[in-house]
């Protein structure tokens, strides 16, 4: 009888966790798609670079996320952005749909194009190493 109660409880609790992926899963996924290994050093350079090829108000990832992924960032609206590094924010890089949504938006804003799978692999590898 107890089990009958546990099953619905799990069904309710699972979506809230949204643990659909992990940093290592993402690195594996994007590396496989890119056909090469992730490179954290390259991810760091990419993250810190002033790209300037996208929208004028967001020339770099650091515009909103700061240069330190363990620190909180700030959106242009003034709202705080939780740290990107999983070591500082355990919820980060655990929800594939969310990761993809923000790569889509932010690569378009910062670069004026989509990020390649290789770039995503590199950035995730760097964030995960912080």
């Amino acid at each position: 009888m107890k089990y009958l109660l546990i099953v619905p409880a799990l069904l309710i609790a699972t979506p809230a966790l949204a643990q659909s992926t992990s940093p290592s899963d993402l690195i594996q996924r994007y590396s496989a798609e890119a056909g090469r290994a992730a490179d954290a050093g390259r991810g760091k350079s990419f993250f810190l670079a002033n790209h300037g090829s996208g929208k004028p108000d967001t020339p770099s990832c650091t515009t909103c996320h700061t240069k330190n992924p363990r620190s909180a960032g700030k959106a242009r609206t003034g709202k705080t952005i939780d740290p990107l590094a999983p070591s500082a924010n355990g919820a980060r890089l655990t929800d594939l749909a969310k990761v993809e949504k923000w790569f889509r938006r932010n690569c378009d804003s910062v670069l004026g194009r989509s990020c390649t799978a290789g770039e995503k692999a590199d950035v995730v590898a760097w964030l995960a190493s912080q």
Binding site: D57, R76, S109
Partner: peptide
């Protein structure tokens, strides 16, 4: 939403 006040806020 691709041009939401200077940023992309694109959604599915």
């Amino acid at each position: 939403l691709d041009n939401h006040f200077g940023e992309s806020a694109a959604l599915d």
